[in-house]
């Protein structure tokens, strides 16, 4: 049995970060892009909690703030998305074409 060290958590977090970034850059559905951004934020949380093992509770408190902020961001994002859907009847990024992208 290999003992789980901080490094293991960091690797998982980095993987989540890369997955989230790829999701944002390649997916065309706005809802999935939003989910990918949440994935990156969760990678951040994992990092913070993992570093907390080394440096004390500070990182965990920060993670709570990140969760709160993610909730606020999701609320605003979905609101904007609904306003967009009312105008265009779509949530596909390819049809966001009124202004040159």
């Amino acid at each position: 049995m290999v003992p789980i060290t901080t490094l293991h958590y960091l690797v998982v977090a980095a993987a989540l970060f890369v997955l989230g970034t790829i999701g944002v850059l390649t997916r065309r559905n706005v809802v999935i892009i939003l989910m990918s951004i949440e994935l990156i934020l969760n990678a951040v949380n994992l990092n913070l909690v993992a570093f907390s093992r080394l440096y004390g509770l500070h990182g965990q408190v920060f993670a709570v703030f990140v969760i709160t902020d993610a909730a606020a961001e999701a609320a605003v994002g979905l609101g904007i998305l609904i306003a967009f859907f009312r105008n265009k009847e779509t949530v596909n990024m390819d049809e966001v074409d009124l202004l040159k992208w």
């Binding site: 944002v24 706005v30 990156i40 990678a43 951040v44 994002g77 966001v96």
Partner: peptide, 20 residues
């Protein structure tokens, strides 16, 4: 609305990088 959506998506993407 479209400008708002673009700003939001790219803005929160950037914030996530900053946080990381």
């Amino acid at each position: 609305v479209e400008s708002s959506l673009k700003y939001f998506l790219l803005g929160s993407f950037a914030t996530a990088f900053f946080l990381y």
